[in-house]
C-alpha cells in the first residue's frame, strides 16, 4: 500500500481515540501472522487498525449503528449470513466494525468478496490487507477449518445492486454457503441489516454503462456514489442455526435448508423495518 507511515500512524491514533479499548482488544484477535505482519491470506492487523478509522467514525457518527444480539455469535468457526444492500458494501464494513468493537473477544471477519474485486486497483490490495478474500469455496473451506468468522451475502450482486423499490426484499439466495456449512459442520448466524437500503437509493441501473466498465451494476442515486446518506443502521444477530445432512445432497433438499435461513432473515427484516421509528433517526 502506498499509504505513508505517517498517515498510518495518524489513522491508528484516530481509531484509538474513538475506541479507547482498542489496544487491548487487538491483542485478543487470534491471527497467525508471520514476520511480515500478515496472515497466510494477507490480513495485516496493524494496517486494519489504521484502515478501520474512517469506518469506525461512520459506525459511530454517520450511521449511528445499533446492534442487537451480538453475543449470540458463538466461539469457533461461524458463517454469518446477511442481506446485502446499499450499492457499496458499507453493510459488510459495519458488520465488521461491530464484531471488532463490540464483540468479546473481538473477531476479524472474513467476507467472501465478488470475484471482480481483486481486479480493481487499490481496492484489491485494501481488501486483502483488511482480511477479505475472494469468495471461492476452497477459500471458505480453508478459513472455516481455521475457525474463522466468515461473512457471506448469498444474494451477491443481486442484493447489493437492487433498486430502491425492491428494498428489503431478499433476492434469490445462492446455495454455496449451505453446502459449506454442512460439509464443515459450521453454525449459521443470520445477520439482518436495516438502513443500508436507504444509504444509496438506486432509482435505476444503467446496464450498458455497467457492462462497458465491467461493473456488476451502474446505479443512479440521488447522492453521487460513493457518498452514502446518513441512514440509521440497525444490525440484528439471530440465534445460531445448525443444519445436518449431506453437502452433496440434491438441489431440492439443499434449497429447503437455504429457504429456512432466507425465511428467518426476511421475517427479521420485516419486523425491524416495521419497528424502526425513522429512516434517519
Amino acid at each position: 500500500m502506498a499509504l505513508s507511515d505517517r498517515l498510518v500512524s495518524a489513522l491508528r491514533s484516530w481509531t484509538f481515540s474513538m475506541v479507547p479499548s482498542a489496544p487491548e482488544r487487538i491483542q485478543k484477535i487470534p491471527t497467525a501472522k508471520n514476520e511480515f505482519g500478515v496472515d497466510p491470506f494477507g490480513l495485516d492487523v496493524e494496517f486494519t487498525v489504521a484502515a478501520l478509522a474512517p469506518f469506525v467514525w461512520l459506525y459511530q457518527h454517520w450511521f449511528r449503528v445499533e446492534v442487537q444480539g451480538i453475543e449470540k455469535v458463538p466461539p469457533g468457526r461461524v458463517l454469518l449470513v446477511s442481506n446485502h444492500s446499499g450499492q457499496l458494501p458499507f453493510d459488510a464494513a459495519m458488520i465488521g466494525v461491530a464484531l471488532l468493537v463490540e464483540h468479546d473477544p473481538p473477531r476479524a471477519i472474513r467476507a467472501m468478496v465478488e470475484k471482480w474485486v481483486p481486479s480493481l486497483p487499490f481496492i484489491s490490495s485494501f481488501m486483502a490487507r483488511v482480511g477479505q478474500v475472494v469468495g471461492t469455496p476452497e477459500n471458505c473451506r480453508r478459513l472455516l477449518a481455521a475457525d474463522e468468522t466468515i461473512l457471506v451475502f448469498p444474494e451477491g450482486v443481486r442484493g447489493i445492486s437492487k433498486l430502491y423499490r425492491n428494498r428489503y426484499q431478499l433476492q434469490e439466495f445462492g446455495q454455496g454457503f449451505m453446502r459449506l456449512a454442512l460439509e464443515t459442520d459450521t453454525p449459521i448466524v443470520p445477520v439482518a441489516v436495516v438502513g443500508a437500503e436507504e444509504q444509496a437509493p438506486a432509482l435505476t441501473d444503467v446496464k450498458p454503462l455497467a457492462k462497458l466498465l465491467g461493473f456488476p451494476a451502474f446505479p443512479i442515486t440521488p447522492t453521487l456514489l460513493p457518498f452514502p446518506l446518513p441512514a440509521k443502521y440497525h444490525i440484528r444477530f439471530g440465534e445460531p442455526m445448525r443444519f445436518t445432512g449431506r453437502p452433496d445432497d440434491e438441489e431440492a433438499s439443499l434449497a429447503k435448508k437455504v429457504q429456512i435461513v432466507r425465511g428467518e432473515l426476511q421475517s427479521t427484516l420485516n419486523r425491524m423495518v416495521r419497528e424502526r421509528k425513522h429512516v434517519f433517526f
Partner: peptide
C-alpha cells in the same frame, strides 16, 4: 488470476 483461490491445490 483475480479469481484464484489463495491456496491452489
Amino acid at each position: 488470476s483475480p479469481d484464484n483461490s489463495n491456496f491452489l491445490t
